[in-house]
Computed example of a mutant assay.
Amino acid sequence: MDFGLSPEQEAIREGVAATCRRFGDDYWREVEAEARFPREFHRAMAEGGWLGITMPAEHGGAGLGVTEAAIMMHAVARSGGGMAAASSIHINMFGPHPIVVHGTAAQQARWIPPLIAGTDQACFGVTEPNAGLDTTSISTFAKKVPGGYRINGRKIWTSTGQVANKILLLTRTVRKEEARRPTEGITLFYTDLDRARIEVQRIPKMGRAAVDSNMVFIDDLFVPEEDRIGEEGRGFSYLLDSLNPERILVAVEGIGIGQDALDRAARYARERVVFGRPIGQNQSIQHPLAERWTALESAYLMAMKAAWLYDRGLPCGAEANAAKLLGGRAGYEACLQAVMTHGGMGYAKEYVVERLLREVMITRIAPVSEQLVLSFIAERVLGQPKSY
């Protein structure tokens, strides 16, 4: 069992970190204050070839696995950019996976190269106000018409909708009450975000102001048939292809943010002198920080195990969900302890940790709640009856 990175993986980590170092705390403070998408960072990552790390080589990508994507996103999240940095490129890592697995050769040739180049930006239209995590209860409907579909409905928490020109859109083509099973009659599209037919309303939120979240209103949007991914009615199964990678990536992002916060807290504890001694000399400061380190390292091992399983085609649902749970919690607890270590200055924007705490909260909430993770593990691993 090898816990080290290969030379190629180490090169990914170092290369991503080098790009990220070009964007310091002042940059991320500025884009948050202006609620402005970090275009310069997005462009730098595209120019470095990082947006295509999991994309097929025949379309200009690196053709690597979720393990390498996790190494990359961990480095991004640990760089100081937090979820603002991670979320600006996150969807490139998992969102297009249904295209890679189920798209036709013509669709892949049309859609993938612009995503790798960063000239196309996609958003993810899945969650709905009245469905939440009950994805089979979505009501956005695609009606078959000559040459394609006409779509009407609403989505919520659609990230990057303000800057995207493409949308990965989950719809119903058979209403739930008319389908043989709840998971049937769901169809997936990747199409232009036509702002004449799609209204995108920004949602004010507690953190990650640089990367927008939105309510999306779809009114009689025509989508050509060639923009449908795979077969009509099988979109739910296609969506599952991206769920475990997303959980793994969110886990390592939460861990990376927590490690960044922990590094800042440890440095502050060494430098801050009170009553004639550095506060880090006090065990009441040392021990909570040390505990946070152990939790972050443990969560990282689970996340990398899940990625290892996924890349080998082995079952990894329990591990991916556990990694998301552990990574989100470990990252949050580390950020909280970092704020507490800074004392009053932890509440000041100057020291960054307050932003990291606000942003790491996302990794506990999305893309799946901790309660559903625990229900999944109880049912699938421990053999308990389904509780919901």
Rank of each mutant, 00 (worst) to 15 (best):
G103A: 11
E291N: 15
V360D: 01
G63S: 10
V223Q: 14
L170F: 03
F376Y: 14
P129T: 12
A11C: 01
E370V: 00
A11S: 09
L357C: 01
Q162P: 00
A84L: 00
S284A: 11
S213T: 03
V250R: 01
W308A: 11
L325M: 14
S88W: 01
Q201H: 08
H102M: 09
P56L: 07
L326I: 03
G258A: 02
G235K: 02
G230S: 12
E47S: 14
P38L: 13
E184M: 04
G48N: 01
D26E: 15
S79V: 00
R39L: 13
A142Y: 08
L249D: 11
A75W: 07
G80M: 10
G153R: 01
P56F: 06
G254V: 04
A117Q: 13
A85Y: 09
T104K: 08
G132I: 00
R358P: 00
R21L: 04
D263M: 12
L289I: 10
L314P: 05
L372Y: 03
A117I: 04
Y238W: 06
Q9E: 07
A44L: 12
I12D: 03
A266M: 09
M1K: 08
E34W: 10
R110L: 13
L115D: 02
R22Q: 12
G276D: 08
G280Y: 05
V126F: 13
L193N: 05
A265S: 13
A142H: 04
R267E: 15
I53D: 08
P38A: 05
A131H: 00
H342Q: 12
I229Y: 09
R78W: 07
P278Q: 14
G276W: 02
Y268Q: 10
H342K: 04
F3N: 11
I257A: 05
Q9D: 05
V353L: 08
